[in-house]
Amino acid sequence: MLRLLVAFALLGFFVVSTPVDAVAARLIAKVDLSSQTMTVVHRGQVKYRWKVSTARRGKVTPVGTWRAKWLSRHHRSSRYNNAPMPYSIFYNGNYAIHGTNQVKRLGRPASAGCIRLHPSNAAILFRLVQREGLKNMMVMVRR
């Protein structure tokens, strides 16, 4: 009986702490704002851990869980002086995961709110999303 209670307690914790969509997603990009890292989980296996840059002081990278919405291979920012945003994966309005030419700033907050990656890593993630499909990709951002 005790084992059964422990099993239900653990199951309850898992259900409450992990969004249902994320459990079903084949591709998950988990972003940790405190460590400025992204962990890519593909089909249940951790495949990559990369440095990122998220919002600098005075800007915000929203915390939450979203499904990827749309892709743009050669995107340019309409808000920030036509800045290049290669391999963009938009997930929440104007927020995206994308490559950056400011690779020396990766690993610390530097963006206006988007999640920046090294361009080669952004290309890998972009291709994975293309292969798995937008509906099968989740973005999870945590503090």
Rank of each mutant, 00 (worst) to 15 (best):
V60R: 13
L117W: 07
P86C: 05
N81R: 15
F90R: 09
N94E: 12
R49L: 06
T18I: 12
S17T: 12
Y95C: 03
G12S: 14
S111G: 11
M38V: 15
F13H: 04
S88V: 03
A25T: 04
A25D: 10
T39L: 11
P119D: 08
S53C: 05
R142H: 14
G12E: 01
Q130L: 11
N81D: 13
Q45D: 13
H98C: 04
R79Q: 13
M138E: 14
M137G: 02
T100H: 05
D21I: 03
S77T: 04
T65D: 14
L10H: 06
T61I: 04
R76I: 07
R131I: 02
V23F: 15
R57C: 00
A55V: 10
L117Y: 07
N136D: 13
A83I: 01
F13Q: 04
N136T: 01
G12F: 09
I97C: 04
H118Q: 05
V16K: 08
K104R: 15
T100S: 10
N94D: 14
N101M: 09
V6K: 06
V46W: 01
S88I: 07
I124E: 08
T61N: 05
A122G: 01
D32Y: 04
P62R: 02
V52N: 05
Q36D: 10
I124G: 00
Y80I: 01
V31C: 04
R73K: 15
L106S: 07
E132P: 03
G44I: 06
S72E: 15
Y91S: 02
T39D: 10
S53Y: 04
V60A: 04
T100C: 10
P86R: 01
V60E: 10
L117N: 06
S53L: 06
I124M: 10
S35W: 01
R116Y: 13
K51C: 00
L2R: 11
L33S: 02
V129W: 05
A123P: 02
Q102K: 13
M140T: 10
F13D: 08
P86W: 12
S34I: 11
M140F: 00
N92M: 10
I28E: 11
R67M: 07
N136C: 05
N121M: 11
R56F: 02
L134P: 03
T39C: 00
I115Q: 02
R143C: 00
R76D: 01
K59E: 12
T65M: 11
H118F: 05
F126V: 07
L2M: 09
L2C: 03
V15Y: 11
N101S: 15
A68D: 05
V60D: 03
R108G: 04
G64W: 08
V46M: 10
A123D: 05
R73P: 08
S111Q: 06
H75I: 00
M38A: 14
I89E: 09
H42M: 02
G113M: 03
A9H: 02
I124R: 14
R108T: 08
M137L: 12
V23P: 00
A68R: 07
L10S: 08
I89G: 09
M137R: 01
